[in-house]
Design a binder for these strands. Structure first.
Lengths: 152, 152
DNA sequence: CCCAATTCTATACAGTGTCAAGAATTGGGG
DNA sequence: CCCCAATTCTTGACACTGTATAGAATTGGG
């Protein structure tokens, strides 16, 4: 990646931040980069990644940046049961597949198509705006591990 | 409800506990009752409800009971983003509708039917056993509140 | 370049859930 | 009915994630 690329990229995020009415700061750009390069990372992982890039950043600034950006739709927050919140830069309509054993999370495209997964049988008067779907299972690696344990 | 009913009921839960290889204790029965009578309650609410019934119980016993019973499929644990875990006694295939504003949670039957909501486009080699769906929206009451605020 | 608004740092704190050790209870077998 | 091993409950401490607050630093429009 050349400097030009980096700048170009940063400019895109800058534009997104400005469009959302947020100030552009080195901390926020670094947090975004971390989210982008390590998808589904938890806040703590992101904190470490940003420290590798910037040197120092307060834990609070990371939380603020993640909160501000996820509230403005620049990144997306996912919170699988039994683990801390994860963040990702894909903000389109897609779901997740979680491994019960290693907690790994991978993206999965919407099974139903566009966004009709939004349509529930009865909406009970609710104004529904999102359907959050998490498929739970066991990933291939953990299936292997399990098979090995059973054979021994 | 007569005493006979209560005993009958307790017997059912006792049987479920025994079938799962768990001991039957007053604490567990009380925790189950609390989950049953206040659906979607958080651990803390359940703790209080059980104290109203039994007098005293340790926080730990409540957590243990909830964990043991949910791991054995006697109750179900739900963890919506941004709030503590909730518990319910319905263990069949159904989903949830959550209000973004008041955090209220209601049951909703599976939109797709039996359990084909399990089928994702590509399973990526995962052995999928559950599809957890949470529809996010705004409940009728909160819609009204919002409308009133806007008119003022 | 300046100044108000926003954001970052540093520290303390709250809520949820877990760990560990010892006391109490449960339930199967004599 | 009683005993004993296994399980469960109590108590207290602790870890982790996230939030609150006040003051210092930075940003960006004029």
């Amino acid at each position: 990646m050349t400097n030009t690329d980096i700048n170009q990229h940063s400019t895109d995020i800058s534009a997104a931040l400005k469009a959302a009415g947020l100030q552009v700061t080195a901390q926020r750009l670094a947090v975004y980069h971390a989210v982008q390069s390590t998808p589904h990372a938890a806040a703590d992982d992101i904190c470490q990644a940003v420290r590798a890039e910037l040197g120092v950043i307060s834990r609070q600034a990371v939380y603020d940046a993640l909160k501000a950006m996820s509230e403005h739709g620049i990144i997306r927050r996912i919170q699988p049961a039994g683990s801390a919140a994860r963040y990702e830069h894909r903000v389109d309509n897609h779901h997740h597949l979680a491994c019960r054993q290693c907690e790994k999370l991978i993206d999965i495209d919407c099974a139903v198509g566009e966004a009709p997964c939004l349509v529930a049988e009865h909406d009970h008067g609710y104004e529904i705006d999102e359907a959050e779907v998490i498929y739970w299972g066991v990933c291939p690696e953990c299936q292997k591990k399990q098979a090995n344990r059973n054979n021994t």
